[in-house]
Design a binder for these strands. Structure first.
Lengths: 269, 269
DNA sequence: TATACCACGC
DNA sequence: GCGTGGTATA
């Protein structure tokens, strides 16, 4: 059987809220090492990868590897019924076709249980190659979300350029053009506001803002987000879930220009 | 003539907001003992009963019994024009066809008056028989509202089962099944969180969540709500209005099962 | 199903 | 006054 008890139940709610607009149905894979999900989005453009390690749960038992297919919309409805401070326990029998979510209020005066029907979903387990990224920029998740949202009102795509000094987000469209530059500041300030850049070589890639905005639904999960990029390879947008794992998104860049080195020209594209 | 002065004017606003989605037009009945309203909802399924005793008003005068038919939508619009701390005075002449609402700001620096046209409404004064309920459960109004709202995303109906230990709310639908159990705790805690159960015999009844959710609009009127149930009889959902009276709703149970004694089997229904 | 507006709580 | 959550509409 599978049984996992998560004290910080709202974390699960945040994860599902972040993914459900991208992926309608997905397999959750359980093993003794933890709880993972990997899926292409509905339009098969981007890839979502969730990993929650078993040691992040208060209690975790998985006798046998199992893959549980769920409707993320229905799962979200159920998780919405949990109180914000509730403890969530998931249970599934090895041979069952349902999974049960139990919510306990902190004061133990209310207990709810919800049973969700499992679905058969073709799992296309795409391996994600270990990539040697040219640049990884880390910035406050809320600030990044704001940037993506703001640029959406200017254009459909954004050019993200990382240099040793900072990261520049550029868009253009009918309205005009926009450039938002965030400087590296590992120094003083509050930890919350730190921006760091790990750069092997400068890189500039173009992405569809529509997907970046969907990914940014994960903002409540983490204080910071990191963007890892390499020329002509998908960006990895990484939200670390403290003490438990991560929620990552992958999106291939638009290839508009054979010369990826100097992206200044793309502002007009 | 009729004249009634209510220091806590926003109470009237809350009452009308709670009822206006259920009943479009209704007669307010005034007598020397107070101010009441009784009406079937628009679809003639549930019944609303409001009672505000004359002693709850700062001043109350009613020379002659009268029935004032009002559009609750229009009444709500007028009451929305009152400040939250305003003192409200209602006035009507015995032979008039209007009622006047006067709002006085606490500092007496602003006075408004609004005149509402009265309507002729067929009053079908249904007597409500005194019922010997098998069970009455009392729980925090906000918690009850949350339960009804949450279960609405699972199914259309709820089975409410009262036992000596607690009350269980169960729903099922396409998404799956849900059970929310609230335990009795008359003991410690804050008064706000008390749940009490007055039980003669266990009872379990099925209701349409749509109506329970409409009734729950009365939540701002009271800290607690009580549900009084007896087999095959309408539930009484009671919001006490402190020192003045009550707003009550009645809804007949769905009869899905001739055997009302053991409702466990209804979980599958 | 996703977006926009409105109301309530912090 | 700002932010979040819920409701209603397209």
């Amino acid at each position: 059987m599978f049984e996992a008890r998560l004290v910080q139940g709202n974390l699960l709610k945040k994860v599902v809220d972040a993914v459900k607009d991208l992926v309608t149905d997905a397999n959750f894979d359980c093993s003794s090492s933890g709880f993972t999900l990997q899926a292409m989005d509905n339009s098969h453009v981007s890839l979502v990868s969730l990993s929650l390690r078993s040691d992040g749960f208060e209690h975790f038992r998985c006798d046998r590897n199992m893959s549980m297919g769920m409707s993320l919309g229905n799962l979200a409805k159920i998780l919405k019924c949990a109180g914000n401070d509730d403890i969530v326990t998931m249970k599934a029998a090895d041979d069952g076709d349902t999974v049960t979510f139990m919510f306990e209020s902190p004061k133990e005066d209310r207990v709810s249980d919800f049973e969700l029907k499992l679905m058969d979903i073709d799992s296309e387990h795409l391996g994600i190659p270990d990539t040697d990224y040219a640049a990884t920029v880390t910035l406050p998740a809320a600030e990044y979300q704001r940037i993506c949202r703001d640029l959406s009102s200017i254009g459909d795509t954004v050019v993200i350029s990382a240099t040793k000094d900072g990261v520049k987000f550029s868009s253009s469209g009918d309205v005009g053009t926009a450039n938002i530059t965030v400087r590296q500041n590992t120094t003083a300030d509050k930890k919350e506001e730190q921006v760091s850049i790990d750069l092997k070589e400068p890189v500039a890639l173009t992405f569809a803002l529509r997907y970046l905005n969907s990914f940014a639904k994960a903002t409540p999960l983490a204080s910071h987000v990191s963007l890892s990029m390499a020329r002509d390879l998908p960006v990895m947008v990484d939200y670390q879930i403290s003490d438990m794992g991560h929620l990552r998104f992958y999106l291939a860049p638009k290839i508009e220009d054979e010369d990826g080195g100097d992206m200044e020209g793309q502002d007009e594209a």
